[in-house]
Write a protein that binds this DNA or RNA. Structure first.
Lengths: 124, 124, 124, 124
DNA sequence: GTGGTCTAGACCACA
DNA sequence: GTGGTCTAGACCACT
């Protein structure tokens, strides 16, 4: 699986890595039970720090996307482990609201915005 | 106009202030030509530092939301000055995509997500 | 003579006024011996502070463009009084160099830059 | 690379630093991919404050001259990232016009002015 | 160790 | 009185 990290982006590297793994789960490149490269290997292949990879793995573990075994192997979990919760929905709500306010203020029509969301949803 | 700043939030204060002002423009509390409090006054009334307010004003200026006049007044601009651009649309696209990927991965149906966006849009 | 002041510009008002008067001299709207409005009148008609007008007049006087009489009247001088000097040439050189360096760095061809200068010269 | 800062000059320090870096890019002392000193190091070697350096770097980033990488390196960009735009040309036009008007008013011949520009261009 | 954010206090040009 | 610049020192997330 190809993971793209952009050092020039303002998003933290560990967050970029986290998102890439989630994307991998979504598009089927990472299936339940699959084992991710070790922290050390992942860090090497991406030319980033081990701590950064570890941070991404830890966050994904906390969210239920994967399990970390004693042997430091990260295994992708079943869907049930990371199904959306009430808290997650609230968070999405806040994020969407922030985007919507600015977009509406700038004159973006509801239809255009909804279209972006729909197209994005269908894309993956 | 009431501006809420949450010092405990991880969003920078200047960014919170920026968003509150945009929200004010959207809901009609700040209309074109309206004058904002001076940097010093705004800082005092929010119990934050001058420079933090200044940073918010500068960003809003760069985005066309307001003009910093030579007579030391921050004036809300006309809609034309901050209408959405191609670059802004691209940015929204990236942000939406990020949210959509994670939401879809977590099993959130398209209809539910679209509903959140629509409700948010109609709310303001 | 019409004088345009843009409160949203970052150029100081007194400097804008100064430039407008020089422009007036160049295009023949202000001829040698002509009398400018009093500081008070000019300030009123431009809706700016008297001190600001005074500052512009003082600077123009120091540069030889006009004379200030005891009755506070500003009179445009003859050309000889404000002919370019060695110091002025040096200053132009510095300003041009600053523009040229950045322009060249950005890939602007010499011909394009020279063309801008020539067109600008012929325009007035 | 030698960077000269004149504390007595009326040009802000961050702006002087910005120009020095652009000059370095132009004369080949700073090539694409090259890494600038960290904000702290640059500040120390110039005996100025961290924040002042940061402001210069931020401006250069906004203009495309460099990227501030997540691994805390300020890297010079490729030419494409800071090629001149329509907006930049308009800005140059305004600046040139301002100089030309005053110069012409002071009796400076077109040829002399053009010569200054040409010499300046060839110098770097 | 690095940059980003925030605060505080100072000076200055502008109005 | 106003904003812009600069300094200094602190905290924090990221690497």
């Amino acid at each position: 699986m190809i993971i793209k990290i952009d050092m020039a982006m303002d998003t933290p590297i560990y967050e970029q890595l986290r998102r890439e793994i989630i994307k991998g789960i979504l598009n089927g490149q990472l299936t339940s039970g699959e084992v991710l490269p070790s922290v050390r290997n992942m860090a090497e292949s991406l030319s980033i720090n081990m701590h950064t990879v570890s941070k991404a793995y830890q966050k994904l573990k906390a969210e239920g996307f994967l399990s970390l075994q004693r042997n430091n192997r990260a295994t992708i979990n079943d869907k049930e482990n990371y199904a959306y919760t009430k808290e997650y929905l609230d968070m999405v709500d806040v994020e969407i609201e922030r985007i919507v306010i600015e977009a509406k203020c700038k004159g973006l029509k509801k239809e255009v915005l909804m279209d972006i969301v729909e197209k994005s949803y269908n894309k993956y």
